[in-house]
């Protein structure tokens, strides 16, 4: 598997174990863009390899994620809870990905995950990035990208 395939695999596996949600790879351009502001989260890592892992998804995905992880009714979830769950998902995916990429004999340092909202018009340009991968998760669009910096 190449690095991008490992990324998709890590994301799908963690999503299933962590939130009982199921995703399948889709071309980013085939995903229906969100109509509302979406969330974009990032986490950096350094060690034998250095890079940045990013994920973008509609707020509905983040809220559903939080509801599934915590086993709480979707109606009781707040956008803040969704954003926090989104960051934690990225944190866990990063750990899984680095093990798949480099094994367990090396040490990586991870940054604290960050999340921000983006206006819907910023979704389109993300899908044009050649390193961006798309996933359809329970009918919701998700974009993921691994950028190696050294």
């Amino acid at each position: 598997m190449d690095t991008q395939e490992l990324l998709e695999s890590a994301f799908v596996e963690v999503l299933e174990k962590f939130a009982f949600m199921f995703g399948e790879p889709v071309s980013p351009s085939d995903l229906t863009p969100p109509n509302d502001p979406f969330w974009q989260a990032s986490i950096g890592f350094s060690g034998p390899q250095k890079g940045l892992l990013q994920v973008a998804a509609a707020s509905s995905f983040c809220v559903q994620l939080a509801a599934n992880v915590l086993g709480i009714d979707l109606k009781c979830m707040t956008p803040e809870a969704g954003a926090d769950a989104f960051k934690e998902l990225l944190n866990v995916v990063c750990g899984e990905l680095l093990e798949k990429m480099a094994g367990t004999d090396v040490v990586f340092n991870l940054t604290i995950p960050q999340v921000e909202t983006k206006p819907p018009e910023e979704w389109g340009p993300l899908t044009l990035d050649s390193q961006m991968r798309g996933l359809l998760v329970d009918e919701m669009p998700v974009l993921i990208k691994l950028e190696m910096t050294s």
Partner: peptide, 25 residues
Amino acid sequence: ISTERSLTRIAELKAAGVRDYMNKP
């Protein structure tokens, strides 16, 4: 309970006195 998978880091934690270690998820 962490995303950290490095055996070196886990050994360092145990040497510091951590009793057990679990991966997320």
